[in-house]
Amino acid sequence: MIFTSARLALSDLPSPPFRAALWKSLGLTALVLILLWIGVETVFEWLAVPFLSNLFPDAPHWVDQAGTMAGWGAGLALAIGLLFLIGPISAIIASLFLDDVAEVVERDGYPASPAGRPVAFWRGAVLSVKFFGIVIVGNVIALFLLLVPGINIVAFFLVNGYLVGREYFEFAAMRYRGEADAKAMRSEHSTTVFLAGLVVALFMAIPIVNLLTPLFAASLMVHLHQRISAKNGGLAAFAGGDVSLEADRAAGARVRPERRSS
Rank of each mutant, 00 (worst) to 15 (best):
A125M: 13
A172P: 03
A182N: 13
V148P: 05
G150K: 03
E170G: 02
G165P: 05
V140P: 04
K183S: 12
F203S: 11
E167I: 02
N210G: 06
A180E: 15
A125H: 01
M174W: 01
I136Y: 09
K130Y: 00
L195N: 00
L202A: 15
I134P: 01
L147G: 11
F131K: 01
V137Y: 03
F171Q: 05
S187P: 03
E188K: 15
V129N: 07
M185S: 15
N152D: 14
P149C: 00
V154Q: 09
V129L: 08
Y168V: 05
F171P: 07
G165K: 00
L145V: 01
R186P: 06
G138Y: 00
H189D: 13
A205E: 10
A155G: 06
A125E: 07
S187L: 09
I206F: 05
M185A: 15
V164C: 01
V137T: 12
A172V: 11
V209E: 05
A155K: 06
F121S: 08
I141A: 14
V159E: 05
I153M: 11
K183P: 13
V129Y: 09
I151N: 07
L211T: 12
R166M: 13
A184T: 15
F171N: 06
I151Q: 05
Y168W: 14
A173S: 08
L145F: 07
F144L: 09
